[in-house]
Amino acid sequence: MTEIFHEQIWNVAESHIGIAWHKLQTMSAPSFFETLPDPKLLEAFKTKLISTESARYINNYYTNLYSLSSDILVLPIVGEMSRYSYWSLGMEEMAKLLDVARADEKYKGAVLKISTPGGTADGCSLLADAVTNFRKSKPVVTSTNRCLSAGYFIASQGDEIVVEDSAMSSIGSISSLFIYENYSRQLQMQGVDVEMIRAQGGENKAKINPYEPLTEETRGYLQAQTNAARKEFVGYVKRGRVGKIKNEDVFSGNVYGAKDAITLGLADRIGDFNSAIKRCQQLAHA
């Protein structure tokens, strides 16, 4: 899709057109709504949250974009993941799309088309639960060449994971981390003094910031929070891949190639996207 903004041409990657269109409608001037091809979508696009009608449109768009099988929903999970993404699908939005597709009789199953290095812990359980709920009535298969961290959190809740037979395919990174950056020394070298003045009675306000070293108390809090995120991650994987995980070492944060992932129970079979579609159809008619 190409649109002109302020006399500049912006190009939007095909995989992001559907959600980009939705967000353009919700954030643009009212006159822009007149360009909608279907008047029925007018009210659907006027809300910040994806309505049922707009979710159906986006589901239909992605399914038609990636597959000839209109009875199997295709949900792309591409790039870095977060609860609220800007131009790509956020995890809340993806959960909404799955919930709407679950109630849509035309879809007999879903394929998650995943290629991601991971993302934020916030939002993972929400989307994972949406996959689990979908799976209760219809099969969910993941097709992936790169399914790491948050991506695997989500994929593990489906029925099967199909991984591409490529030297660059990667699965895993099951753990969590918190990255803290402290710029206080750099600022001192530049002659910049930063002083935090906190309100009396609110001395713990913003104790995690890039201008002050962490206190041991704050470091302990972050460690506990990171540990809790990993515990939740591992718990979900064990629930979704029950009886399949062969070795507890997979929860150390390691990343595995396609064949090792299958040996360890992190994935189920080698195959491309089309084979994942066919497998989902098989499960749907089993």
Rank of each mutant, 00 (worst) to 15 (best):
D193K: 12
A101P: 12
K238T: 02
E7P: 00
N60M: 01
I277L: 09
G118Q: 06
N247G: 13
S125D: 13
S156N: 08
E92A: 13
K259A: 07
N60K: 04
R230V: 06
S88Y: 08
T2I: 06
Y61I: 00
E181N: 09
S156D: 13
S82E: 10
T215F: 07
L264Y: 06
I245Y: 06
D268Y: 12
Y61V: 01
Q8I: 03
V255F: 05
L177V: 02
V12G: 04
P213R: 00
V234C: 09
Q8K: 14
D129Y: 12
L187R: 01
E203R: 06
E105T: 10
I179Q: 12
K106I: 01
K138R: 10
A150V: 05
Y152K: 05
Q225G: 06
L49D: 15
A44W: 01
Q223E: 14
A20E: 03
L187E: 01
D122Y: 15
P30R: 06
S125I: 07
S137R: 10
V255Q: 11
K136C: 09
Q25V: 02
Y256R: 00
I77F: 05
E232K: 07
G271L: 02
P117M: 10
Q8F: 12
D268N: 14
E203I: 08
R279C: 13
G235H: 09
G18C: 05
A229E: 11
L68D: 15
W10L: 07
L264V: 06
V162Q: 07
A110G: 05
E164R: 08
I77N: 02
P76C: 09
G158V: 14
R198N: 10
P30K: 07
L177I: 05
M81E: 13
N254H: 15
S115I: 04
T263I: 15
D260H: 03
A29M: 15
S69W: 05
Y152C: 01
Y86C: 14
R185M: 04
P139E: 04
K138S: 10
L283Y: 12
K205A: 13
T226M: 02
D165Y: 13
R56C: 07
N11E: 14
L41S: 00
I277P: 04
K207C: 03
Y62D: 14
F251I: 07
G253A: 07
I19D: 10
I171M: 14
A167L: 15
I270C: 08
I17Q: 12
Y66A: 01
A55N: 09
S54W: 03
S166I: 04
I270M: 11
K207F: 05
K48M: 10
K136G: 02
N64T: 08
Q225Y: 13
A150M: 15
A276M: 00
Y66T: 01
E92F: 13
Y152R: 01
A199C: 02
W87C: 11
H22W: 11
Y180R: 00
N254A: 09
F134M: 04
G123W: 08
L98Y: 04
F153L: 09
K23T: 05
A228F: 10
I262P: 09
T120D: 14
M27I: 05
G18S: 02
F33H: 12
T226R: 00
I171Y: 10
E181C: 04
G253R: 03
K259C: 06
V131Y: 11
N274T: 04
R279A: 10
L41N: 00
G79L: 09
L283A: 11
N204M: 14
M196E: 05
E232A: 11
N182Y: 00
D165T: 09
